[in-house]
Design a protein around this nucleic acid. Sequence first.
RNA 1: GGAUCCGUGGCCUAGUUUGGAAGGGCACCGGCCUCCGGAGCCGGCGGCAGGGGUUCAAAUCCCCUCGGAUCCGCCA
Length: 731
Amino acid sequence: MELETEVLSLVNKALEKAGLSSARVVRLQKPPSPELGHFALMVNPLAKKKDPEKIGEQLKEALQSFKLVEKAVLAVSETKKGKKQVYLNLFLNETALRNARAEFHNQVLTHVFSPDFGKWEDFKGKTAVVEHTSANPISPLHVGNLRNSLHGDAFANILESLGYDVSRRYYVNDVGLQIAFTVVGYEILFYHLNVRPDEKIDVWLGQVYASMNCLYTIQDLKEWAKEEFENVEFSSDVYSLSEKELSEILSQIDKSIKDLNALIEETPRNDKQSKKHQDKTPEELRLKEFSDKKSEFKKYFAVQHSLQARFPFIFSSLHSYLIENNIDLKTRTREYLSTYEANPDSPIATLFREMVNWCLAGFQNTLGKFKVVFDAFDFESEITWSGMPKEIITRLAELRGIDTSKGLKGLRYTYPNDKVVALLKEIGRDRKTVPHRDNIPDLQLTRADGTALYPTKDIAYSIYKFQKTSADKVYNVVGAEQVLPQFQLLLPLWEMGYGNYAANLHHYVYEIVSLKNRIMSGRLAQYVTADDFYKETLVRARIAKKENDQERGVDLAKEDLDLFNSIVEAITLSVIRFSLLESDPKRRIVLDIDQALDLRQSSGPFVQYALARTHGIFRKAKEQFGISEGSILAEKIDVSVLTADREAKLFEMLGSIHDVLLRCYVEMNVSYVPKFAFELAQEFMKYYESTPILKGTNREEMIARLALVRAIQRVLTFLLELMGIPAVTQM
RNA sequence: GGAUCCGUGGCCUAGUUUGGAAGGGCACCGGCCUCCGGAGCCGGCGGCAGGGGUUCAAAUCCCCUCGGAUCCGCCA
């Protein structure tokens, strides 16, 4: 602001007068509350070794002699340790202040009322990819996935608003063991037993997945035990774990653990030197294996009973089918998986696709409720079939001088320090932000059989995302637990000559959502689904709306059901989107469903209510003065009559939206939007309570205030749109 | 063992990038509808995990300790 530089020059003059021409850059700051003044000057840094209070006194005298300064007040506060902090608070001359404010207010209004408000051109002509959600298509979306979707979607909206052409993409992980055994189960139920889903498809598949996972894991565990322990008696059913088997196996494991512990105790302590070697001894590794297995056995013993109890039909049908038809589940799963990876035209591939697409349709149905849509679904299988992973492996092996004449089996990609340093330098990233610093773990590129592993396909997919869309930036909205794998993508890209991709591939980090008093686990088919969350919130919103109508003596549901429903939906979406977006994405949230459903505690409805009030004002304005939202611009608006500090604060906020969005962009953090919307709504509420809009002293003032209200309304509506929330005009 | 993130009143949280007067919300207590809609407003209670360092000045930067989460698989 120009006013600020003017005041600053006065401060410098005053400093000279006091013989304190400072080498340091003098900065003005805003006092914490308007009653303290318009600008504040920190005296301590100017005083150097002298008494800051005396210096402050001198400066005060000097500054007060200027016309622009109405008065200056010395304020002293103390730090915890009793150090004095001296501020010189400056109150400016009324008319000068008014002129400066009027100019700024006019700028803000012009900006907010311009037809292309909300469309900035910072990144005009650039393209960005936002990949988000990307949940495995074998169980319903839960509130954790929803946090991902909503952040990804809102971030994409912000990028668009800043001028990017955005492609919203979903990476479908349709290749993998878990998918494969779920397909095996799907085929059995749907085609061999003619079972039809009696629930939403993704929910039903979630039960199939949990059941198959349990059967598969128990088979695997028992095979392990059979090899380890010869004297345990196993039943012929490899897919279930009896109490007798469990206790025998556990006692065997305990015995082994005891033996190993004794062995480790006996071996002479490694000296400190070798402690630096983090490699565990073979005994220690075995010990870990045993204790891991022990907890797995216990866990899956419980899991099988839990699933049997909760989904008896699906679980038993699958279980008995496998036994009666003598199917080796592990073998069949591997067969299905390798067929799918190798042959896109096989019937098995068709089966995979059928199931996956069906599940994705369920996801789209869910996400549609939250107004989240995608431009593309990219299948991991397509990436596999494209041959890109193989090319990447070969190329990386070549670059590292690895002999591949005997095939590509069990290839590891390492992260040599010098290469990492060079990479970081080129992409301008701080070493501190790198997980594991100078000891980044290797990346396993291929299996023992030479087929590509997930990380390799991820490298391929990263390249694909850039090339398919000619993107300048790619954002992956991925959980915080994946910071390492996300970073590991960069070096291979850079090494293969895609330094530009490495520099522009970003990880939008978000933390998981956990639930108070509830456990979420896909493998147990235990979760609060996004659908349930929506449904429950909708019910609450409807009740709240009904109660509210009753208090006001209306019955909107009777008068206009469509309007009633649209309001309830808007409130629902605001509750959900605010509750998952307003906290820092890097912060873990523990969702207390009951509390989240208490609408009066959510900032979503609060913002909507503020918006409803702005519309209420205009309804009245039209009634009484014939002025509407549309016609206000035709009036002669003179904002110079708005001189209150509250009004100045509101204009200042309205003028800062672009900065807020840029901050979201730079920090990859959407949460500033709902925070800002809430603050603006809050500030407006205070204004509304303190200042009569339509009952101002004169028409000029009323028009100016209406214009301000209209601007607030526009901005709030825009902010809600960014978050994918429909804005209400009444509540 | 190594690495990353986090710790702000009874509970949830903003502020940490760029050091400068600790903001909100819930809960609790007390006020405010003859008024542009009380899903609101006003007031009260109460806080930077602990220690050290740098600085005129530290919630913020550096180091240590404690506490929590996560990552270091031929799983995806």
